[in-house]
Computed example of a mutant assay.
Amino acid sequence: MALSDSAVSELLDAFRAGDGVDLVRESVRLVLQELIEAEATAVIGAARYERTPDRVTERNGVRPRELMTKAGTVELAVPKLRQGSFFPSVLEPRRRIDQ
């Protein structure tokens, strides 16, 4: 898996800003976001804005999801689907407080 050009550009911008902790947090966010996008593409059967005969559903926006990491809180965008559901395997579903 290779990072997209826009993801690499965002990472370079964070590097040029010079904030070490922000660079680590942004790197974690970019890699996790790319993993989520790749998994969604596999489930849907087509990449974003791509039309294929193998596509089983369509994307219908995203929902924000925060993930606590050692580098700090990372804001991710989890794709929503028109039909069915999708939850990335790299994230843990929310649990009730007593579990």
Score class of each variant (00 low, 15 high):
D98F: 07
R55G: 11
E58W: 13
A14L: 02
R94K: 14
L32R: 02
S89L: 03
D54Y: 07
A38Y: 09
S9L: 06
D5Y: 02
T57D: 09
K80L: 12
A71H: 00
K70S: 14
R63G: 10
T57L: 07
A42T: 13
M1D: 08
E10R: 09
P64I: 01
R51C: 08
G45R: 04
G45I: 09
S4Y: 01
L23M: 15
Q99S: 11
R82M: 10
P88K: 09
F87A: 12
A71D: 08
S89C: 02
A77E: 15
T41V: 09
P93G: 07
A14P: 01
E34F: 04
L35C: 14
A38R: 15
L12S: 01
S9A: 14
F86T: 10
V62P: 01
D22T: 07
E92M: 11
L81K: 05
A47Y: 00
A2Q: 15
E26Y: 01
G45S: 07
L76R: 04
V21N: 12
E50H: 12
G84S: 12
A42S: 14
G61P: 09
L3A: 04
A7T: 09
A46V: 10
G84V: 11
A77I: 00
A7L: 08
P64K: 13
P93H: 06
T57S: 14
G72H: 06
F87S: 10
E39K: 06
L11K: 00
K80M: 05
L81Y: 06
R48L: 15
A40F: 02
A47G: 14
V56C: 08
A77L: 13
G45F: 05
F87E: 12
V78T: 05
A77C: 02
G72M: 08
S6Q: 09
A71N: 06
E66D: 12
E26D: 09
F15G: 07
L81V: 13
R51A: 13
